[in-house]
Design a protein around this nucleic acid. Structure first.
Length: 320
DNA sequence: AAGCGCATCAACCGCCCATGC
DNA sequence: CGCATGGGCGGTTGATGCGCT
């Protein structure tokens, strides 16, 4: 079964196109249209298969092709459409005038996919990755943070690390799950400030403006595009939309009213163990967090993980 | 300057689907 | 209905360029 390839005839040229071949192809299509692609090469005097001609035309020679770097808007459009359509490059390309499916596919594979992976997002599902490998960068950063905090001679470095840790918390809390619907706005300070303000510091230890400013600019944002969050400052927080991270930190992140259960934050979603269990295990027995759950597996992989996230003294260090 | 590794992207390959006979 | 054909699509490859050692 199956059909023979269109390019299996001997003697047909493969590989990069020369300017002369391009010229012939463009001239022929300009004069006659492409008609049957299989018949075109002979008619145009090209020693190529029809398929090769079609690809060259659609991906490179078409007059309406837009070349050059993808804009921020285009990048966001691709991300949004990919989260809906998956690898339907041709369908995605119809929403990006002048861009070919091949170009979008290449851009995805060489840029966007890597960015998402670096951010801990599964590029196929657009969901946060919960496996241990996705958590490694955070684990390493947090382990380093603890080391820094334990060494008073490196106070300055520790301060920066604290800010980095909080920046990570910000990023984590602003990650929607496959919720690109609607506008994906650039990460703006206002959004970040809202998020900051949505974090309760019950000891009255709110982050001051200077720290906020530092926090918002350090380290340089790793998020290449922003996510619209539905965080707000509403003081009334329902149990449905507030998640308390155990009993240790009294640390509450508000998710607003219009997020579904399925769209809680990246950080919080990864903590699938019920708060009482996780918090009790992790806060009361930080060295004993090894029972079988995804969360505790993570904790077991790094003895610092639970302590850093939920130990009051650490959290107070961070926010002071 | 040479060698190496990595990133990029144009082009190819193989499969699938629609259509015509 | 079954087969042949053309066109389209997504995945993969390989040439090229660039940066680092």
């Amino acid at each position: 079964m199956g059909r023979s390839p269109c390019c299996d005839e001997d003697g047909l040229k493969k590989g990069p196109w020369t300017p002369e071949e391009d010229q012939k192809l463009v001239q022929f299509i300009k004069n006659h249209g492409h008609g049957s692609w299989r018949a075109l090469p002979k008619l145009a005097g090209l020693n190529r298969c029809g398929k090769s001609c079609r690809l060259r035309w659609t991906n490179y020679l078409r007059p309406d092709i837009k070349r050059g770097k993808f804009s921020q808007d285009e990048e966001q459009t691709i991300l949004r459409l990919h989260s809906i359509l998956g690898n339907k490059w041709s369908a995605i390309a119809t929403h990006l005038p002048g861009r070919t499916d091949n170009e979008i596919k290449n851009f995805w594979n060489t840029h966007l996919k890597k960015k998402l992976i670096q951010m801990g997002i599964d590029p196929m599902t657009h969901q946060p990755r919960t496996d241990i490998f996705a958590s490694l960068p955070q684990l390493i950063a947090l382990a380093s943070l603890k080391d820094l905090l334990e060494n008073p001679l490196q106070a300055e470095a520790a301060h920066m690390a604290k800010l980095q840790c909080f920046h990570f918390l910000l990023q984590s809390s602003s990650m929607p799950n496959n919720n690109y619907g609607g506008a994906i706005a650039d990460m703006e300070e206002a959004t970040s400030l809202n998020l900051l303000n949505s974090i309760h510091f019950p000891l009255g230890n709110n982050i001051n403006e200077t720290s906020q400013s530092q926090l918002l600019h350090y380290p340089p944002p790793q998020v290449p595009f922003g996510f619209q969050t539905s965080l707000n400052n509403n003081e009334e927080r329902t149990s449905k939309n507030s998640v308390e991270l155990g009993h240790c930190s009294n640390f509450v992140v508000d998710h607003g009213d219009n997020l579904t259960d399925n769209s809680s934050s990246w950080l919080l979603q990864s903590l699938e163990t019920p708060p009482e269990t996780a918090a009790a295990t992790l806060c009361n027995n930080p060295g004993n967090a090894s029972s079988a759950s995804s969360y505790n597996d993570t904790a077991a992989a790094s003895p610092y993980w639970s302590e850093l996230y939920f130990n009051d003294s650490i959290m107070h260090e961070i926010i002071s």
